[in-house]
């Protein structure tokens, strides 16, 4: 998820990706990870102690319209922009209230029209730590911390084709959840994402309506919020969600120009998520769509994943 977020953030950067980004963030983050009992950086589900879940997800996200600043437009020299990714993710139950999640996506982009070259590669590695510090009568509170770091030297400023934007990130998230005995749950979360400066290949670029004579680029921080209503019982989980993500500052795409990592990308996504895990092996799927945004593509994303849950240490008591 973290990396998904990152991916998406990067993507978000790119027009399309932008659209995707929030979506992607939400989607990817949430989507790929879920194991039966767990678990993504944006849910209230935990792996039990000494159990782990390995998940691999595939995500397909595309847009043929984007928000150039606030102007919704198409671009005949891009056509349909598609970002695909495959992400292995491992969630580990350290205690029943403390989980760690790591993930590393491989991402590739393409445009159906025009002359912009595809990009592909391993994107950003992420680590999430999830801690349930209150759990009473179905109500729980969780503190979640995430960090990500680019895993390869991919090109960050060739948006919307870049697979990411090379930021190191740190995320602080608070999540609250209530689950009724019937299995119905309601979860809400909010996060703040710190993002590092990046280095680009050029030593001059435009941002904030001025020219910078440097290869360092200051990327705005970001924040997000989400609400999800769902049902979780035994092998089945299903939910609907709405997510909002935005940069804390940043500039807009200039008229008829390409996006840039400094852009203030924002999007609101709606989507559904479902998981079925009768035994150790399970599957999940997720779909989302951007209903509004700025400086990013209006993406529609689908993802599917397989999950495998196992014990990584023998429990003497069992």
């Amino acid at each position: 998820m973290a990396h998904n977020l990152l991916i998406h953030y990067s993507m978000m950067r790119s027009l399309h990706q932008k659209g995707l980004r929030l979506l992607g963030i939400l989607l990817t983050a949430a989507g790929p990870l879920c194991c039966a009992y767990a678990q993504m950086p944006n849910d209230a589900i935990y792996m039990g102690k000494k159990t782990a879940c390995l998940a691999v997800s595939y995500t397909h996200s595309s847009w043929d319209q984007y928000w150039e600043n606030s102007l919704k437009r198409e671009n005949l020299n891009i056509g349909t922009h598609t970002t695909q990714s495959v992400m292995p993710m491992l969630a580990v139950g350290i205690t029943k209230d403390f989980n760690a999640i790591v993930a590393l996506p491989y991402v590739w982009t393409q445009a159906s029209a025009g002359n912009l070259r595809w990009q592909k590669g391993v994107q950003d590695a992420s680590l999430w730590l999830k801690y349930r510090f209150l759990n009473k009568s179905g109500f729980s509170l969780h503190a979640i911390a995430g960090a990500s770091i680019p895993a390869t030297n991919y090109i960050p400023d060739f948006l919307p084709m870049s697979i990411g934007i090379q930021c190191k990130t740190a995320t602080a998230r608070l999540l609250a959840s209530y689950r009724h005995k019937s299995g119905v749950y309601l979860t809400a979360s909010g996060s703040y994402i710190f993002r590092s400066k990046i280095t680009i290949d050029r030593d001059s670029y435009q941002a904030d309506d001025r020219l910078y004579n440097s290869n360092k680029v200051s990327v705005p921080n970001a924040y997000d919020a989400s609400a999800r209503l769902g049902y979780l019982k035994k092998a089945i989980q299903a939910e609907g969600f709405i997510e909002y993500g935005a940069c804390d500052g940043g500039d807009n795409i200039r008229r008829n120009d390409m996006p840039f990592p400094t852009n203030n990308m924002r999007a609101t996504l709606v989507g559904v998520y479902a998981k079925y895990q009768p035994k150790n092996i399970g599957v999940n799927a997720r779909a989302s769509h951007a209903i509004s945004g700025r400086n990013m593509g209006q993406s529609t994303a689908f993802s599917v994943g397989v999950l495998y849950q196992f014990r990584y240490a023998k429990d003497a008591n069992n």
Partner: peptide, 25 residues
């Protein structure tokens, strides 16, 4: 290891992110 390395690592990342000023020649 988690408390010793991960949390300081996060703190360092936050510091990286804090400065938004670009130094130009």
């Amino acid at each position: 290891p988690i408390t010793r390395y991960v949390i300081p690592a996060l703190a360092v990342m936050m510091l990286w992110s804090c400065s938004k000023t670009v130094d130009e020649p």
